[in-house]
Design a protein around this nucleic acid. Structure first.
Lengths: 217, 217
DNA sequence: CCTTGACATGCGAATGATTATCAAATACAT
DNA sequence: ATGTATTTGATAATCATTCGCATGTCAAGG
């Protein structure tokens, strides 16, 4: 008793237009592009079809953190990063592709059908220090991160490294700062990239001179 | 130049009410409960304060997959499962707590500040077969899952196991079905719990007789 | 104890994203 | 070509959330 789908012109264009996007457009971004080819198309049609196409598995619907839905032509399994500032979304290759299975006895009775992993942070554009500006024009919470290029969390992690005599792992830092080890490891990666920590041994890190100089300002 | 917060009566009640919730209420669920104590409170006040409290880290804002925001008194790092049917949210202990750090050179320039892991599936209540009903009262897509208690994906995985001569791992099944290994491992866990597959060796699974009988109906 | 200014509140209206409704148009099997 | 189930476009409706603003409250200083 399957309801059969018809390949209408608009459905075809919608699918086609999404597929030629390298980004992850929202319904209305897509609508704007499609209007150029089909000026009479309705926004509702775009929504409807994106929904249908994702239901039948021709595209993927991304429901990222309470924001506008986005759509992805790529139905392969992959994870995403999004910018907390401008809400741009990108693909991100995860180091460990295998999922973290949950202890079966601990699933609270849920019949789990999937899992979503998403990273967040600042995209290249939004990292550019733009003076006193935080989220949505908040009064004047002067943010240290703007002056040093370090987020508060990163500073915290870096300070923990500074206190340590020898190279240590993310768990040690997590213990020292009271932060979640999940966040810590993300921060370390970022700090490493900026050259503020280095890794003398696999999985052990220490602060660099450059990192120390960051802390002194 | 910090903006100083006042602990007003309503803010106190809101915090208190959330803390005595073992669930993860939405703003308006909380509003309903709070109205009993403060009948004159405004919904906007609830929203405002939940936002502020989460900004200063006294509570956590959960932005789960495109739905209504939920709030959590527990600021410790932990992951969640949500029901795709009724949208209930629960805590879930993840087996591997360490995050999957991303290859630094592959971060696309993002300065990553965190990561969110969420599982989804059917909660105990929504697993009860309730005749022909899928999401949002969809016409009549008769769903096999209702008759057997297996989702289509689970059936697919189980069928792959049935075809295999010997015990195999989730990657083998992923390859055989073309599914994402992430999903496969979740399904296996569920199937194992139901007794349709068993694990003769760690990380290897095989179909049980009970599983075989499921496939024949 | 009265005034001031910074926060906060309550109300209703506004917004933004998404869905629902429904008559008219269209695709597709026959 | 024809019948009919599916789709469309236009518009209204919904839902969660936020905004504007007049009013209220608090803490500190005179």
């Amino acid at each position: 008793m399957e309801k059969k789908l018809r390949m209408t012109h608009q459905r075809e264009i919608i699918l086609d237009e999404l597929r030629r996007c390298r980004s992850h457009p929202t319904a209305d971004e897509l609508y704007e592009r499609i209007k150029k080819k089909l000026p009479r198309i309705s926004l509702a049609t775009v929504y409807r079809n994106l929904e249908i196409l994702s239901e039948v598995g021709l595209i993927t619907k991304l429901e990222i953190s309470g924001r506008q839905k986005r759509f992805d032509w790529d139905v392969q399994d992959h994870d995403h990063v999004y910018c907390t500032e401008c809400h741009r979304v990108d693909n991100i290759p995860t180091a460990t592709t295998t999922c973290l299975p949950v202890d079966p006895d601990q699933q609270k009775g849920y019949q789990i059908t999937g899992c979503r992993i998403e990273f967040y942070g600042l995209c290249p554009n939004c990292q550019k220090p733009r003076k006193v500006q935080k989220f949505k024009g908040d009064k004047d919470m002067a943010c240290k991160s703007c002056t040093t290029g370090l987020s508060d969390t990163q500073r915290q992690v870096l300070e923990a490294f500074a206190k340590s005599e020898e190279a240590c792992g993310s768990k040690d830092i997590a213990a020292a700062t009271g932060m979640e080890s999940k966040k810590v490891s993300c921060q370390i990666t970022a700090l490493k990239k900026k050259g503020f920590v280095s890794s003398p041994v696999r999985c052990k890190y220490e602060i660099t001179d450059e990192g120390k100089s960051q802390l002194s300002c």
